[in-house]
């Protein structure tokens, strides 16, 4: 089992979009895949047409009263399951706050799923909180979407510093550029100089594309309704490069 968190401190950078499409592609290859919607906005649950309410609520879940299993729902796709978000608990953070060893709590919850899933993707809320700390502790890989701005590198450095601080050196940080507009010279220049500065950034980029925006109306992963689009091909290439990076890092 590999736990892949899709995370960035910044909001609106394409975390959910990435998490949904990558987990769909992993499942399509035949890997048993789970996507855990950890954001109370429940965007991934919405994209997959699954009601975000958990019976008993996430309070019981994090306290360890009920096994994760009972909350899992099958998506419309083979090998692809979702653990829906719970917006009834306003803030998972609060719950973690009063549990013992909060940062270890998530990885412990995931343990029983190890034999069942090849990949577990975590769709994370933005910001830096106790929940994000717990997520970073539970993850083997952190896939980090970056928007081509001068500030994005700063975000990445912050994240790396945090990982070092928490002694999470084994966690692999996998950054890539999203919402890239190849027509904007500024974007291309930025990409080149940022890559020079941070060579770990993946070669694959996700373009800014209206097909991607349509995911909200279609309520399906991108390849399902726009399989032949450039954007779908970009996600496919992205997943391949990430899989390779994961393979090499073993």
């Amino acid at each position: 089992m590999k736990v892949i968190a899709v995370y960035n401190i910044k909001g609106g950078v394409g975390k959910t979009t990435t998490a949904v499409n990558l987990s769909f592609l992993a499942a399509l290859q035949g890997h048993n895949t789970l996507l855990w919607d950890l954001d109370s906005q429940a965007a991934s649950s919405f994209y997959l047409r699954i009601q975000p309410k958990l019976k008993g609520g996430s309070r019981a879940l994090v306290k360890g009263k009920s096994a994760l299993h009972t909350f899992i729902k099958g998506t419309d796709f083979e090998n692809f399951d979702l653990l829906p978000a719970d917006f009834s608990a306003r803030n998972l953070d609060l719950i973690l706050d009063d549990s013992k060893k909060p940062t270890r709590r998530l990885s412990k919850l995931l343990q029983p799923l190890a034999s069942e899933y090849d990949y577990i993707f975590l769709d994370c809320p933005p910001g830096m909180s106790l929940l994000s700390e717990a997520i970073l502790h539970a993850a083997d890989y952190i896939v980090c979407p970056l928007i081509p701005t001068t500030l994005s590198v700063r975000t990445l450095t912050q994240l790396q510093d945090f990982l070092n601080e928490q002694e999470l050196n084994a966690v692999n940080l996998i950054p890539f550029f999203s919402m890239v507009d190849r027509r904007k010279k500024m974007h291309l220049d930025l990409l080149a100089s940022l890559r020079e500065h941070t060579p770990t950034i993946l070669n694959s980029t996700i373009p800014y594309a209206s097909d991607i925006e349509r995911m909200g109306e279609e309520r399906n992963p991108l390849p399902v309704f726009a399989g032949k689009s450039k954007a779908a091909a970009a996600y496919q290439a992205l997943w391949q490069e990430i899989a390779l990076r994961m393979h090499e890092s073993r």
Partner: peptide, 9 residues
């Protein structure tokens, strides 16, 4: 008639 239930439903 073969019915395949989806997890969670």
């Amino acid at each position: 008639i073969v019915i395949q239930i989806i997890k969670g439903y």
